[in-house]
Nucleic acid binder design. Sequence first.
DNA 1: CTGTTAGCGCATTCAG
DNA 2: CTGAATGCGCTAACAG
Lengths: 335, 335
Amino acid sequence: MADVARHAGVAPMTVSRALQDDPRVAPSTRVKVLASVAALGYRLNEVARSLRAGQSSDLLGLVVTNLANPFYAQLALGVESLAAEHGMTMVLGNTAEDHGRERELVDNLVSRRVSGIVVVPAGNDHSHLRPSALDGIPAVLATRPPSGADLDCVLVDDFGGATAATRRLTEAGHRRIGFLGPLPGLWTSAERFRGFGAALAEAGLEPDERYVRFGLRDVRAAEHAAREILSLPDPPTALFTANNRNTIGAVRAVTDAHPAAALAGFDDFEFADMLGVPLTLAAYDPAEIGVQATQLLIDRIAQTDDGTPRRIVVPTTLTHHGQPHPRLPSGDPSP
Amino acid sequence: MADVARHAGVAPMTVSRALQDDPRVAPSTRVKVLASVAALGYRLNEVARSLRAGQSSDLLGLVVTNLANPFYAQLALGVESLAAEHGMTMVLGNTAEDHGRERELVDNLVSRRVSGIVVVPAGNDHSHLRPSALDGIPAVLATRPPSGADLDCVLVDDFGGATAATRRLTEAGHRRIGFLGPLPGLWTSAERFRGFGAALAEAGLEPDERYVRFGLRDVRAAEHAAREILSLPDPPTALFTANNRNTIGAVRAVTDAHPAAALAGFDDFEFADMLGVPLTLAAYDPAEIGVQATQLLIDRIAQTDDGTPRRIVVPTTLTHHGQPHPRLPSGDPSP
DNA sequence: CTGTTAGCGCATTCAG
DNA sequence: CTGAATGCGCTAACAG
């Protein structure tokens, strides 16, 4: 910068001002300075700039559990787009659902003085994400509600979506409906099960534990569980699956020799319409979650909020792929 | 840091040294310092640290064209994993194939003094990525070779993969084979077409322009083109598709009323085995590209290379989903 | 409108 | 082994 100042015949301070469009600098001077900047190929050093600024660095942290999941990639895209709109740059970390790694990443981001962090938390205790634990840097949770800390968060309407999707099954006359989901310790998983149960209750039914499986973390496990359930002496005529891994596993099981079962689930995914199996899905826009979370963060950074924790719930839409579910004959359709 | 020093009864310099495991500090002093650090909840300021260091910031930039594509999400994961292994943090930007945005993002990263940048370039001229244009910060290209600049790059074996996949079709007796691909200006697209042509040549054939379509950027366009080609009076009996968007479009076209055609293509994707259509695919590991690119970058940062541009080619593997392609009767199978 | 002074938090350099 | 001085590149805060 000193070089530029020399080249332009002004003081460094003037260069600094010209570069940040300070209105107090004369137009003629500004032109002169900008010419020198161009001539010397000079570029502002953001590191020094943000050191001086003390707080803020125009960086926005994002910590996700699994970037390989297109869901989180979309969420990241949402964060990036809004961040960019506000002149901020996204720093991305992947925890692979590892609490320790999450701590490391968050710590790292704090050390870099990012302006805020969007976190998809790996664990159920979020006390380490309190602003006080983060040198005052605000964090916003995505897809899971805070526990042990008063934090902003953006959630999906897990309960509503699961209820609506399951209702489609009961409305079609199904009375024996199975459930496949990931670990019940996951908030989303628990909520979706609750929604599932609510829809059953509306129809005067309740979950049958023989047909309920939790802890299915990948497609293979889900497929296996689906086969087991469908092989029971008195198998369900329909399945509700709590996320796309489980849905896919169920589809695999159903397209095979086993007795067909109607499927409804949570999460839309590409190709859902190409699997040759009718599928009712509670869909939502993952990017929207990223956008909303980033907006909360920006509000908090700008202090335009009132300080009380906010909670945004992103709605789901019911979509249907493939042929409509055949309406079962009234009464319990026996095998 | 001064606070910690005071608390520990030492000079700030000693705190600094203790924190970076300088062997010259006495063990007892180190313990004292670390205790104070913990007591005060002190955290090193990476911003100041990297300002002092002048170069480097333990940040590694990644600029991709489309994070929504699982391919690039996987690539990002590869970059992140190796970066993390080396104590570096990934900063991610998305260009949406926009040259201007790419320049902005790269410029931004340079201003932040990242140690290096992995770029999936949007355009065909890469002169703006020369180290001299980047204040000496090295860039590595991923999936596309440099042009107008001597840069390291990591490529996929586009030619070989396309040749191998197409060969499967000719070996099965197909003689009228169509081609669907994105814009021919894309290097990968051109290479894959070249590989397609090479396999045809081996079988004494050549591309029939009636069956060749470029510029298909999404599934819908690919599906439409596939339908058109398959509706010709003398339609091809097989199609080679140059990327997963095109493959999916072709699958959609083929599963419909149209005369079936054998399919081979580039890129594997999830569910490829669930579409009910036999599919030969040239597959490769996108994360591997990210890892290799990051390794090149780290080498260059550490100056452990000899300065000449390096080029790494990631191999492809032929995978087959669904039933094997039925072997056509010898001779040209007429409709 | 422009320049001068001072310091953000840290680590290199040189003295103890 | 430890400490003091110095400056990384930039910009508030105060002069002129």
